[in-house]
């Protein structure tokens, strides 16, 4: 065996490289390639399924030598920002954006408040902590479809909460979010919070448990009341947990789809539509792919606005530090 020469670095660690092929393919083909493909096609007028990933139709002839270029369909149907113009002029998209905005904002604020308060309560060295946590977290194990259907039933005006309270004598009581266009998104919000706050609570609890117990002792020795300790010492210390939680909630909000499908199907009318549903409907039912691509590119943009600054703060500073 000749071991004197430096081996080809390409073959060093070969098994590891082979083992990483699925990861490399996923990263490059699906995440980078797929995303780029969708973004590029959002500038086209494609209405129906392209037959192939790329159409190798454009042929450049140089003498007797010819070259197919893989962007034929894009060149042929390139329409610039037309899909986006149309998107932002579509009422249904505007409703979707508005809903996402209301749902997102409320869900973000309420998740944080409810999650943190519950975590703080559970962190008081109470008995039955596990029982309480188990009950509050179980909805998270359920799918959005199940969640949506349960709350569709609970909010059913003829049989659900409204009818029960009317039955108790409050005849004029009205609470039927799923059937009134103005407040339907809040009906979805109730279900979403029920499903998701347990997770936020667990994350916050982990954050609280991660705080040095000496801080509490120091605060007590200094005579600082508990609420002040939380507000001025503990919460600022939990900044990293909050940021991570924020990113998790935000990227989840943008994706909201199943819950709407199950609970309201976008109704009444189009009053509870959301972007993800817009994308799906245009891609797979409306046969208007360009719209679907443009809408999904907008979703990507929304996530990028949240994730890129976070990644910069989280990893950029760490590299420098």
């Amino acid at each position: 065996m000749d071991t004197t020469g430096r081996p080809n670095p390409l073959f060093r660690n070969l098994s590891a490289k082979i083992a990483a092929i699925p990861m490399i393919l996923t990263a490059l083909v699906i995440f980078v390639g797929g995303t780029a493909w969708t973004v590029i096609y959002s500038f086209t007028s494609s209405k129906l399924l392209p037959k192939k990933l790329f159409e190798w139709t454009d042929v450049i002839n140089i003498g007797d030598w010819s070259l197919s270029i893989p962007t034929g369909i894009v060149w042929k149907s390139f329409v610039g920002l037309q899909q986006y113009e149309r998107l932002w002029n579509t009422n249904r998209w505007m409703v979707s954006i508005e809903n996402l905005f209301i749902y997102g904002l409320c869900s973000l604020v309420l998740s944080f408040i409810i999650g943190f308060v519950l975590a703080a309560l559970l962190d008081q060295k109470i008995r039955f902590e596990n029982t309480f946590r188990t009950i509050i977290l179980y909805p998270f194990a359920l799918s959005f479809i199940v969640t949506g259907l349960v709350w569709q039933w609970l909010l059913n005006p003829d049989f659900g909460i409204q009818s029960v309270i009317r039955g108790m004598g409050f005849v004029g009581f009205t609470f039927d979010p799923l059937y009134s266009a103005d407040i339907v998104i809040y009906g979805v919000l109730i279900a979403g919070l029920w499903q998701g706050t347990g997770l936020i609570m667990v994350l916050m609890l982990a954050g609280l448990r991660g705080i040095d117990q000496e801080i509490w002792k120091a605060a007590r020795v200094d005579g600082i009341p508990a609420w002040k300790t939380y507000l001025f010492i503990v919460i600022p210390m939990m900044r990293p947990v909050f940021i991570t939680t924020l990113v998790i909630i935000a990227s989840g909000i943008v994706r909201i789809y199943d819950l709407i499908v199950a609970q309201t199907s976008g109704g009444p009318g189009i009053s509870s539509e959301v972007p993800a549903k817009y994308v799906y409907d245009y891609m797979f039912q409306g046969q208007n792919l360009g719209q679907g691509f443009a809408a999904s590119t907008m979703m990507l943009l929304a996530v990028a606005i949240v994730v890129i600054p976070w990644a910069y703060l989280e990893f950029g500073s760490r590299k420098r530090g």
């Binding site: 096609y41 399924l49 590119t297 990507l300």
Partner: peptide, 22 residues
């Protein structure tokens, strides 16, 4: 590649649905 993978986790699925269909 790992970094791409992790960032990929944040990309809305809707963006990649169609390329995967193809």
């Amino acid at each position: 590649f790992f970094t791409i993978l992790i960032f990929g986790a944040f990309i809305p699925y809707q963006v990649m649905l169609y390329p995967i269909v193809i």
